[in-house]
Design a protein around this nucleic acid. Structure first.
Length: 383
DNA sequence: TAGGCCATCTGGTCCT
DNA sequence: AGGACCAGATGGCCTA
């Protein structure tokens, strides 16, 4: 799985092809002890390894002169981007003060609303590098100037330390997220943007599944257009022991959503047999895993384990605001319901059909007109 | 060597 | 007022 394939995967919202992969997630990504990741898997992935020495306290390496009394230098310079002697330091003033984009993009739109008179980018920069910003900013600087340089430097160091800790917490949260998102095994760990994209798509797919579970028949009607939010299960037998709708479950053209009841025991499943790719509508039914099905359960992507792991890590997670879809996802995972078995009974169709059938739900937005309108609905009870 | 990704520093802004 | 949050800037590491 290379980066291109991953990009395609993220673009296709396909998570259902990930069998045989999830159980590697916790072992194959290199981590380092400094960024909150486990250290036992440091072999085989270069990206985290090279960070091993980065996540250390910078205080000891800082070249701040705590005895300095010249208020015109170091962190007191409000015009200089960076200015640090370590890491983000800027030894050459580029002429672009901190907070100003080189391309003149203006406010990015992220973050909080800025008042017209404020903003990260000073309106003008005096030749000496001082900002001619609002009077509030000037007053603030005057107040800061009232502090002696040693105290300012100390506060700057403390602020830097807090910022590092904040970013470490953020990175820990990213790692926790990586561990609960099924994704294709890669030789390197997921980048942040990949993690967020996969998480978003994963949540979308879970939403589809929940909606389908709540109203299989309605979902089946929607899915009848060919987009199926499930996975292929084969070798299923009906509860009575006979083949399930012969030509359906045993047919790779059929897509089946099953929620675990008693997979381990081979008991009945509540399965929503959604739709065959020929457009025929399938009925919801209850089926029982055959011995063959049970035999492949070890290869299934079983979300319970990462969920449990997440629960174990819950106490270590940084505070997550209770709004937004990520929060909803976290909530539903902590509730452990529903537990979804993602499986591929026929490995030969795992990728091709998995993409085309299993995860076509999102690509075919018209098949789920209600998804965006009621996206939060399945999660409201968990909020 | 260019580009991607990341950690860190930094100062402005907002919130409590 | 202090801390959290944010985003720009910078340099390091790695891969293609």
């Amino acid at each position: 799985m290379d980066a291109t394939q991953l990009t395609e995967l993220m673009g296709s919202h396909d998570f259902m092809q990930l069998q045989h992969q999830l159980h590697h997630n916790n072992n194959n990504y290199n981590t380092d002890g400094h960024n909150g990741l486990s250290s036992e898997s440091a072999e085989g992935s270069s990206r985290p390894v090279r960070r091993a020495t980065r996540r250390t306290s910078q205080l000891s390496n800082n070249t701040y002169d705590l005895e300095m009394t010249d208020s015109s230098s170091q962190s007191d310079d409000t015009s200089g981007g960076g200015g640090s002697s370590n890491g983000g330091g800027s030894t050459t003033n580029t002429g672009h003060p901190s907070g100003c984009s080189l391309g003149g993009d203006g406010p990015s739109g992220r973050g909080r609303v800025h008042h017209a008179s404020s903003g990260a980018c000073p309106s003008t920069i005096a030749p000496n590098g001082t900002s001619s910003n609002s009077s509030n900013a000037n007053a603030s600087r005057r107040r800061k100037g009232a502090l002696n340089a040693k105290e300012r430097n100390m506060r700057r160091l403390e602020s830097n330390e807090r910022e590092r800790m904040r970013m470490h917490s953020l990175n820990d949260a990213f790692q926790s997220l990586r561990e609960v998102i099924p994704h294709v095994e890669m030789e390197r760990r997921l980048s942040k943007i990949e993690t967020l994209t996969l998480a978003k798509n994963y949540i979308i797919n879970l939403t589809h599944i929940i909606l389908s579970k709540r109203n299989e028949e309605a979902a089946a009607l929607e899915l009848n257009s060919g987009a199926v939010g499930g996975v292929l299960l084969s070798n299923l037998t009906s509860e009575s022991g006979g083949p399930v709708a012969s030509g359906i479950a045993l047919n790779s053209n059929a897509a089946t959503l099953c929620f675990e009841d008693t997979l381990a025991s081979g008991g009945p499943f509540d399965c929503a047999l959604l739709a065959a790719t020929d457009g025929s509508l399938l009925n919801a039914t209850t089926v029982t895993a055959s011995p063959a099905m049970q035999s492949i359960q070890s290869q299934a992507i079983h979300l319970q384990t990462p969920m449990e792991q997440q629960q174990q890590q819950a106490s270590h997670l940084p505070h997550l605001h209770g709004h937004g879809h990520l929060g909803a996802s976290m909530s539903i995972q902590s509730q452990q319901q529903p537990r979804l078995i993602i499986n591929g009974g026929n490995t030969s169709v795992g990728l091709g059909v998995g993409i085309g059938v299993g995860v076509g739900v999102v690509n075919n937005a018209t098949s789920f007109a209600d998804i965006n309108d009621n996206f939060d609905e399945p999660f409201r009870e968990f909020l």
